[in-house]
Design a protein around this nucleic acid. Sequence first.
DNA 1: GTGTAATCGAGACGGTACGTCTCGTCTTCTG
DNA 2: CAGAAGACGAGACGTACCGTCTCGATTACAC
Lengths: 209, 209, 209, 209
Amino acid sequence: MEAPRRSSEAQGDSTEPRRVGRPRSERSRSAILAAAGELMLEGGLGAATIDAIALRAGVGKATIYKWWPSRAAVALEGLMLVASDSWNVTEGATAMEALSEHMRAVTRLFTETPAGPLMRSLVADAQSDPAIAEAVREQWLEPRRAVSQAILREGMASGELRDDLDLEATLDIIYAPLYYRLLLGHAPLEEQAIEPLIDMVRRAIVGSG
Amino acid sequence: MEAPRRSSEAQGDSTEPRRVGRPRSERSRSAILAAAGELMLEGGLGAATIDAIALRAGVGKATIYKWWPSRAAVALEGLMLVASDSWNVTEGATAMEALSEHMRAVTRLFTETPAGPLMRSLVADAQSDPAIAEAVREQWLEPRRAVSQAILREGMASGELRDDLDLEATLDIIYAPLYYRLLLGHAPLEEQAIEPLIDMVRRAIVGSG
Amino acid sequence: MEAPRRSSEAQGDSTEPRRVGRPRSERSRSAILAAAGELMLEGGLGAATIDAIALRAGVGKATIYKWWPSRAAVALEGLMLVASDSWNVTEGATAMEALSEHMRAVTRLFTETPAGPLMRSLVADAQSDPAIAEAVREQWLEPRRAVSQAILREGMASGELRDDLDLEATLDIIYAPLYYRLLLGHAPLEEQAIEPLIDMVRRAIVGSG
Amino acid sequence: MEAPRRSSEAQGDSTEPRRVGRPRSERSRSAILAAAGELMLEGGLGAATIDAIALRAGVGKATIYKWWPSRAAVALEGLMLVASDSWNVTEGATAMEALSEHMRAVTRLFTETPAGPLMRSLVADAQSDPAIAEAVREQWLEPRRAVSQAILREGMASGELRDDLDLEATLDIIYAPLYYRLLLGHAPLEEQAIEPLIDMVRRAIVGSG
DNA sequence: GTGTAATCGAGACGGTACGTCTCGTCTTCTG
DNA sequence: CAGAAGACGAGACGTACCGTCTCGATTACAC
């Protein structure tokens, strides 16, 4: 996949790429992302074929392929869109309060927005396409993990958390159960239902002293 | 999906089903499972198409569809086969020792056998087919979780583990990171690499006294 | 195809082939022929698959292949059965009367018995299998043409018919329109509807003197 | 079958069907027709499977199914193509001369071009599919019969032919033997071999006075 | 009666072709 | 000249029959 060739939030690269001809239609872009999200919510992931997205969005298939290299890239950008404003870290809170709220926010994101189906689609496609897997890791997972990592470092510095935490392992303990439940569905993924998971995290990382 | 209509481990049902006609060929069954496993190892999950499995196994496609309702059902049975003897619980060990060894065994299973690719294929397909998701949960996840659950109960009774553990959450803490790493690949899934994860589990579930 | 390996009307070959073991079941043979005829009448020729015939007849497929080399062979024998007693030549009649009645008999055979669908099946299969074509010619066409040929020779000898008839061409003029209508269905194939065809034959072969 | 949804000879329907999108590829159309004809000549009718045609033509199977509803429809259009310029009526000739030449032209068409195999394929398929049968009658048989019918009417008007001819029966006498020999192969279908058939027709339809 | 041997039903098997679907690319016309 | 419309080559899908191959059960003759 190697990431969308272009994306909307042009990350300020000064070398603008020959601005000639008809500019990209913003209408198309948002219609495509919306159609993809809707189809995944309505008919499951299998319903969001490229043909179906193009039809629903009133867009030519080539337009999709022009801007995104694969269905997963569309999903990834859709995910970014949906999740864009849902990663606010609670200010002036303890590390454990911030982490708890973060876990609840991820849960709400997965259950109350198209982010859940979009993420499931991404993980599914990532299993057979390493490029998609890498894009998910680099563009989705790592940025989010960085948020929690900062909280953890702060908590370790303040003495609230153990000072011998393995950061990678701790992040896995925090996130893994949420993705595990999203993908396997063996247990509910709801705000209340994850409190026991938060407790497990607390016991594992708060200083025992 | 509703599981293979028949499987190998004929569970001794006394009402034998009219033994007429040519019996099922054991050769076909094992060739199909073997071909599926090989193809997943060689060419990734995308390479294990039904056509390719049939070709590799020297088998008609209809034979596959006769005994398994979907590609995922083949993978599930292949998984059972590969994993059949790898779930031995360490006898006479503490709960934490047993759980540690269990986590290492799962890790080895995923990394050193076709079980890893098979499981990845199953989870991927489960995202767009609820029947597959249910089969994975009922035939794979739950039986394995039952093993750990027994260990946990024993540890709680003996006082080795906290007596206020939420079993579901504990099981998620144990298994989720392994599947998370298998599916996302953001961190290594090796026997040494998971020691920090085992530590996290230990801190979360061993009595703090 | 090369003709049924064995058929019912055992033509008394003295070298009997070791008459031990269970003899052929007459029940199977007639059930197969009946099922084939019924299926062709009911669902068109496409419905008379070997699988369907075996199912309808309550017979194993192998039993069919044991005694007939192809679906066409079954049809051919079914045709013989249906047509067995319908080729009586009118005695003591003029050649033209005999031929007229013969054409009407063929017409009745094709429209009022399974012989029509059976013949259509045979001709269809003969287009892609030369062996079937040959069997149809040798076992069906030629014997019937011989009947008309005898009538023609007699009529030529008696002076009723022209004495310069080309026999092959005459036989084609007699039979071809009937098969043409059976196979293409562009015009009705009924006893009354073929009177004009009989007239054409009369004009072509009766002496003009 | 209901005939190709569109064909080449666009019959000038004023309601043009929204000319947007990529137009149909003429290359594909002719490659498919050519491949079908070649395969029938080379390997018999059984060799002209849709898979084989698509492979030979370098075309996706869906492209064939998009424009033709069945293998027979492809054959029918191939037949039109092959036969397109072979139905010229001899001008300024007697009716009997015109009919004779017409019968010879049909014979040449069946023996010296792919039209023979194509027609055999069509008739074979027509036996189990009424839609194909109707297409053959309406799109092939009737237009050709109309040619002969015109000749017959003229000949009857001029007094060259009997004035009491039954047209349907006469057309059958003319065409049936040719198709009969094509389909059954009991007698040669060559230009010389059909002279006796032409004689039979002459005797049947030329005024006896 | 008791073999012995061929037949029977049932149905699983390796294949081939079917007709449908989705993919990602290409080609044309329209705004 | 960007983009919608949609045709295209490719190839996997799941189904239907093909003709062959086991099976166990059933005959009937030969001993």
